[in-house]
């Protein structure tokens, strides 16, 4: 396996951990978009341009859309979206 494959695999593994460990939904939505970009690089390395294109448009357009409107509706009722410890 060439070094490019190993580096991108390690980065995707670290990205998945970063998405899970981020507890605030708004920040997690941003980290999820970065994770989608890392997955696009991995899918291109696996020689799958259709799948990479799909993940690119979904991770930058569709997921932020759905998540932002959901977070906005939860917030606008005046409630907090994180729990009281803020973690």
């Amino acid at each position: 396996m060439i070094p490019l494959q190993v580096v991108s695999i390690v980065l995707v593994g670290a990205g998945a951990l970063a998405v899970v460990l981020q507890r605030d939904p708004l920040r997690q939505a941003i980290v999820n978009s970065v994770y989608a970009l890392l997955l696009v690089v991995l899918f291109m390395i696996y020689q799958a341009p259709d799948v990479a294109l799909s993940m690119l448009v979904v991770g930058s357009i569709a997921y932020p859309l759905v998540l932002m409107v959901a977070i906005m509706r939860v917030r606008d009722r005046g409630e907090e979206t994180t729990d009281r410890t803020g973690r």
């Binding site: 259709d50 294109l53 979904v58 357009i61």
Partner: peptide, 17 residues
């Protein structure tokens, strides 16, 4: 070329958004 209804549909939705 790479593409199709699923990918392009999301991109079109992005344009309207």
């Amino acid at each position: 070329t790479p593409g199709g209804g699923f990918q392009g549909g999301v991109a079109l939705a992005g344009a309207f958004l």
